[in-house]
Amino acid sequence: MNERPDTDPIEVKVVDPSQPDTAPETPAEEQVSTLRLVATLAVAGAVAGLLIVLVNLHTKPIIDEYRAEQLRLAVYEVLPGVARYRTLYRVDDALVAQVPEGAKASDFRQAYVGYDETGEMIGVATSRGESGFQDIVLVIFGFEPESGILLGMKVLESKETPGLGDKIFKDQVFVDQFFARPQTPLAAIKKGSGKGLPGEIDAITGATISSKVVVSIINNGIADWQGVLQQADLEQIVPEEAP
């Protein structure tokens, strides 16, 4: 420790004759008061908190914007032709435009109602997760609430086997099947064994489970939302806004 002669005071062990020799360490440690310990931690905590809050102030807008952008992109992808959308929250099977007082947005399932240039409603996008081969597969998809026609699908999160299950979002041929399907529910079938029915989706060879999960998410999702959406008067909840 010869590099720091300036800061390192020479430790002088003061031997108190009244203390037993057997525990020379204990008195030295007791010299540090509890107050000082607490103070040190408090200062450290305060500095840390300050630093974090400062950086957070700086990065939060960027992060939020990125998230919003990602969501926007996803909604635009699964609702082809959409120009703008509004977020609705599902509270007890009813749809509201505003989260109730004191509740967090993330506590409610959300639907994104998309409109085209002319203000005409194109469809509704929503996300849903189900257990896939490895872990949860999270999918966002858009559909027409009245007819149940599937407009588009995008996998948001998946840990499916790379090179196999991950084809559910990497294999464009597979993904393309989910755009503008006139009939739901869909059915995943083995490639080449189809009978030409409208709801058929060719499953990925070797990744039947993953393919079926995507199909199941969409089928269950539409079944789950269709009733709620059909009952609600979307126009009323989301009044037309000036473009």
Binding site: D107, S131, D135
Partner: peptide, 18 residues
């Protein structure tokens, strides 16, 4: 917000995604 069933959470944490 998570809809997973308790059994699936348990089983996933224990063996599938050990």
């Amino acid at each position: 917000m998570n809809d997973q069933t308790l059994f699936s959470i348990f089983f996933s944490a224990m063996v599938v995604n050990n």
